[in-house]
Simulated scan of single mutants.
Amino acid sequence: MRHCLALDLKDDLALIERYEAWHAGGAVPPAVIASIRAADIRDMQIWRLGTRLFMIMETGPAFSAEAKAAADMASEDVQAWERLMWEFQQPLPGTADGEKWLAMQQIFALDDQP
Rank of each mutant, 00 (worst) to 15 (best):
P29D: 11
W22H: 14
I16D: 01
G26P: 02
V32R: 05
M55D: 09
I41T: 04
G50P: 13
E58G: 09
R48N: 11
S35H: 14
I56H: 14
D43L: 12
K68P: 07
E20F: 03
G25E: 15
I46C: 02
H23Y: 09
S64V: 13
A24L: 14
W22M: 11
T51A: 09
R52M: 06
V28Y: 02
G60A: 07
I33V: 10
G60F: 06
Y19I: 04
I33G: 02
A65D: 10
A27K: 13
G26Q: 08
I33L: 10
E58L: 12
I16M: 05
R52S: 02
V32Y: 02
A34T: 09
P30F: 06
A24C: 12
G26R: 04
E20I: 06
T59D: 07
K68H: 14
I33C: 04
M44Q: 08
E66P: 03
A31P: 01
W22A: 15
M44C: 02
V32D: 07
V28W: 04
I56G: 13
A34G: 11
M57Q: 12
G25R: 14
V32Q: 03
I41Q: 09
G60V: 03
S35G: 14
A62T: 10
E17N: 02
A21Y: 11
R52I: 01
A24E: 15
P29Q: 10
M55R: 12
L49A: 13
T59M: 08
A24F: 07
G26H: 04
I33Y: 01
A27I: 03
S64P: 13
H23R: 09
M55H: 08
G50H: 12
K68V: 03
L53C: 05
A27D: 01
E17F: 08
E17H: 05
A27Y: 07
A39W: 05
